[in-house]
Computed example of a mutant assay.
Amino acid sequence: MTTDTVTAAAPAGAPAAPSVHRRALLTWLAVYPTITTAFLLLGPYLGNVPLALRTLVMTALVVPVVVYALMPLLLKAETRLARRHGRRR
């Protein structure tokens, strides 16, 4: 058995995960405004910092915000919206 074929089964009664296309859209909806905001707030302070270090700082701030705060909120909202409209994922 390869790791490519292993999938985690959802608990009985749990909603299905969004399709890969919806997850991509939700991820973009979280990442784009977060990166834009980070650049607006920190850009003036990081302007003279080398690109690799600037990228390190930005990703160190943006990734946790997206993963731990925004994605759970967007996934909950997407689940509620899908249920309200009777859509399947």
Rank of each mutant, 00 (worst) to 15 (best):
L51W: 13
T7W: 04
R84T: 13
L41H: 01
A24I: 11
V65M: 15
P11K: 10
A9V: 09
A38V: 05
H21R: 14
G86Q: 02
W28K: 02
V6C: 11
L42F: 12
P11T: 07
M71F: 03
T79Y: 06
A82T: 07
K76Y: 01
T37K: 04
M58R: 03
P44G: 09
Y68D: 06
G47D: 14
L42I: 14
A52P: 00
V20R: 04
L26W: 02
V20G: 06
T2R: 00
L81D: 10
V6R: 11
A9R: 12
L46K: 01
L51F: 11
T59C: 00
V6H: 13
V62P: 08
P11M: 12
R89K: 09
L51N: 10
R87N: 08
E78I: 01
L25W: 15
S19W: 15
T7L: 05
H85T: 03
V6P: 04
A12W: 04
P64F: 03
L46E: 09
L70N: 00
T59D: 02
A77R: 10
R23V: 02
L61W: 05
V63C: 03
A8Q: 11
G86L: 05
A16Y: 01
R83S: 15
R89S: 12
P11S: 15
K76I: 00
A14T: 09
V20W: 00
A60S: 14
A12D: 12
R80T: 09
R84G: 11
E78F: 03
V6G: 09
T55R: 04
T27F: 03
M1L: 14
L56K: 02
P44Q: 04
I35Q: 02
L74I: 02
L46A: 01
G43Q: 12
A12Y: 05
A69K: 02
V49D: 06
A16G: 01
R22W: 14
A17M: 08
R84P: 09
L74W: 05
M58F: 11
L61P: 09
H85A: 06
R54N: 06
L53I: 07
L25H: 10
T7C: 04
A52I: 00
L29P: 03
Y45G: 12
L29N: 05
V67F: 15
A14G: 06
L51Y: 12
P33Q: 14
L29H: 04
V20L: 04
P50L: 01
R54L: 06
T79M: 00
A30Q: 13
